[in-house]
């Protein structure tokens, strides 16, 4: 069943810009999003990625009804978001990564209580959801702590619980893991996976972190300069973008560039060497091969950068 349907979506902004050589500011029309068409089925988990300023937030804001499209059509759960914003709000949950919708000076509990009232969630349902989310998100002990005293990670979990208490069919997450430490990120991903599994909640998230996508999304939509440049699996994206991961190896001694099957040595600096290998290949056999023929002191793996992947996507001719 199609839950989100976007057809020929376009949004422009008028901005004033100083042009070179001229002291006057001119009005320029900028296309934040253009010719966007995609469908998302109920129960999907879709990563929506792209560089800064690509139009990710603009799209999410149109899908939630905050911004009115310049042209094109959107149907979310059967309605036009900007015309039925308030009604649609009951059926969706939204989390904007860097701002909170919780009450700064009051305990978490108060924000949750208010949400129950303004969403008019059935009280029993609310209690059950709250108990479950407190458990899964490890918020139980923080319920009576004023929001201003929570850490960024705790607040983000609080915001996610707040966005889910009314059983939304769709959850939009705008940069949910930004600024979080590795453990918080991991927990959050685990929670979102179980949410999708247990409740069949449709998830759409924008992110800078490819690991979010790897952990969560079967499908990725890539947008750049307002247009869609890719729609498919993450593996397919890596393949098309030819993206690579990097194995950073610290050896005990300085040696000649490592020669090993399945990887390519890119850089050597003293005892440290950088080896790149295809992003969809496993690192384990490489590490094993390395350890058997070299004295390895330390290892780390660098994930491909979204910007790099997208750059690659452009520099290669489209395959097929």
């Amino acid at each position: 069943m199609t839950l989100i349907q976007v057809t020929d979506l376009r949004r422009t902004f008028e901005v004033r810009r100083k042009e070179e050589g001229s002291r006057r500011r001119h009005r320029v029309e900028v296309e934040a999003v253009r010719d966007l068409t995609f469908e998302i089925a109920a129960g999907e988990m879709v990563g929506y990625i792209g560089p800064n300023g690509a139009g990710k937030s603009t799209t999410i804001k149109m899908l939630t009804g905050i911004l009115v499209p310049t042209s094109g059509h959107i149907r979310v759960a059967g309605v036009d978001p900007s015309r039925n914003r308030t009604a649609l709000a009951r059926r969706i949950g939204v989390v904007f990564g860097q701002r909170t919708s919780l009450w700064w000076d009051l305990p978490l509990r108060d924000s949750f209580d208010l949400l129950q009232k303004i969403y008019r969630t059935d009280p029993a349902r609310h209690r059950a959801n709250l108990a479950e989310f407190l458990e899964l998100l490890d918020l139980g002990e923080l319920l009576d702590t004023p929001v201003r005293q929570l850490s960024l990670g705790q607040r983000m979990r609080g915001d996610i619980a707040a966005a889910l208490l009314h059983d939304p069919e769709i959850l939009y997450l705008d940069e949910p893991t930004i600024g979080l430490d590795v453990i918080s990120k991991g927990r959050l991903r685990e929670f979102l996976r179980s949410l999708n599994r247990e409740r069949d909640t449709t998830l759409m998230l924008t992110t800078h972190d490819l690991q979010d996508i790897e952990a969560l999304c079967d499908r990725v939509i890539v947008i750049d300069h307002g247009t869609q440049v890719y729609d498919g699996t993450l593996a397919g994206l890596h393949e098309r973008g030819g993206s690579t991961r990097t194995l950073v190896v610290d050896l005990v001694d300085e040696v000649a560039p490592i020669l090993i099957a399945g990887a390519e040595t890119r850089r050597v600096e003293g005892p440290r060497q950088w080896l790149s290998f295809p992003a969809d290949a496993s690192a384990a056999p490489l590490v094993a091969a390395l350890a058997s023929s070299y004295d390895v002191a330390d290892l780390s793996i660098q994930e491909p950068d979204i910007e790099d992947v997208i750059r690659e996507l452009y520099s290669r001719p489209p395959a097929g």
Partner: peptide, 15 residues
Amino acid sequence: RFGRLDTMMTKPVPL
């Protein structure tokens, strides 16, 4: 400016 209006617009109460 602080993006609070965006948050309000996602709630089921008249803006």
